[in-house]
Amino acid sequence: MYIKKILVAILLVGLVGMAVFAWYVYNTVLVSNTAFNNKEAHVYIPTNASFDDVLEELEPILKDTETFSTVAYKKGYASNIKPGHYLIKKGMNNNDIINTVRSKNIPIKVKFNNQERLENLAGAISNQIEADSLSLLHAFRDEVFLKENKLEATTALGLYVPNTYEFYWNTSAEGFRDKMATEYKRFWNEQRLAKAKKLNLTPTQVISLAAIVQKETAKVEERPRVAGVYINRLQVGMLLQADPTVIYAKKLSENNFDQIIKRVLYVDLELDSPYNTYKYAGVPPGPIAMPDITSIDAVLNYEKHDYFYFVANVQNFGYHKFAKTLSQHNQNKAEYVRWISQQGVNR
């Protein structure tokens, strides 16, 4: 009888112990440990992060960091951290969270357009992926990379075709650059290359001309017509005489790309720069900005017409008046000069 009581007591203690253990496991591993009200939270874990870094990143979205740490060590995550962008959903338990941050790196959408220089591009990209602007700029300017892709410092910006791309957040500067080189080659398919060849232009020249077209007009539907003007000038050996190239040349010569120039003066036209298309014939040595796809395709599919001149249309802002003859153009230009002078725009 006495032995039976002892066995019952041992059994009860065992059951209590099992219950306590089950309760501990349940509360540590299986209970929700998220502390946010939204449906999901984005977590960014840097390359070479320590477990303390991970805890610092996760602390604002966790109810209990201690139970998370316990499970993380038990599952071996604390010594095998993976960088990347992770999506934590509301109601996840510690086990779910750890499984997510060690194996479910989610790509992000990277967007860029209309950058004037590689420096601007590097800054824009560094705000979207882990790589910093200096490492990106160094990767963009790497001489070996440029040579391999038949580019120079002046044409390097043209490699980056504006669009929306998928990247892992922890992509390196070199990884970003290399993928963009692949995208560039994909963009310049046989059809586009054939059109460029028919124009007697290289892809880099098409991009340089497209940059001028984009600077000239914000109206997408007008870009093929503007491109047609420049193609006509190239075909007859005229100077392009594009004001945006003069503005770029001025900014470049003064190393000041923050200045805003609304009006090109006659003195600016004398600036000695290969980008000044009032002095130097042909397409500039590189793009004066990053043209988007509509501008590139506007050049490749330019409107065939007899126009050689155009000027801003003050009666239909945003658009231009086109002319076939210089005399007609001078009349249109005089109207524009009167209007801009009335606005008090001197620079």
Score class of each variant (00 low, 15 high):
232 N>D: 04
218 A>G: 15
305 H>C: 03
231 I>T: 04
284 P>T: 01
96 D>V: 04
126 S>D: 08
307 Y>D: 08
227 A>Y: 01
70 T>E: 11
74 K>G: 02
180 M>S: 08
22 A>L: 14
318 G>E: 09
266 Y>Q: 12
295 S>D: 02
100 T>K: 10
149 N>T: 13
65 T>Q: 12
11 L>Q: 03
109 K>M: 08
307 Y>G: 06
146 L>S: 08
299 V>C: 01
58 L>D: 06
176 F>G: 01
91 G>Q: 09
20 V>E: 09
281 A>F: 11
213 V>P: 00
167 F>V: 01
153 A>G: 00
185 K>T: 11
307 Y>L: 08
280 Y>Q: 07
155 T>R: 06
187 F>Q: 11
86 Y>E: 04
97 I>V: 12
177 R>W: 01
103 S>M: 03
332 N>W: 04
304 K>G: 00
310 F>K: 05
246 V>Y: 00
278 Y>M: 09
30 L>T: 09
98 I>P: 02
301 N>S: 08
214 Q>E: 14
148 E>K: 15
189 N>D: 14
80 N>K: 11
147 K>P: 02
57 E>Q: 14
25 V>T: 10
151 L>M: 14
249 A>Q: 02
84 G>E: 05
121 L>C: 10
120 N>Q: 12
200 N>A: 14
171 T>K: 03
211 A>S: 15
131 A>T: 04
212 I>M: 08
3 I>T: 13
36 F>E: 10
304 K>H: 07
151 L>S: 09
123 G>F: 05
180 M>P: 04
217 T>M: 13
174 E>I: 07
171 T>Y: 00
138 H>N: 14
21 F>P: 00
38 N>L: 10
59 E>K: 15
130 E>I: 01
28 T>V: 11
104 K>N: 15
159 L>W: 07
39 K>R: 13
20 V>N: 07
274 P>N: 13
168 Y>I: 03
139 A>Q: 10
165 Y>K: 08
195 K>Q: 08
298 A>N: 01
21 F>S: 13
128 Q>I: 03
192 R>N: 10
103 S>Y: 10
115 Q>D: 15
272 D>A: 09
307 Y>H: 08
125 I>N: 00
277 T>Q: 02
215 K>G: 07
45 I>V: 12
32 S>A: 14
197 K>A: 15
204 T>M: 13
158 G>N: 07
158 G>L: 11
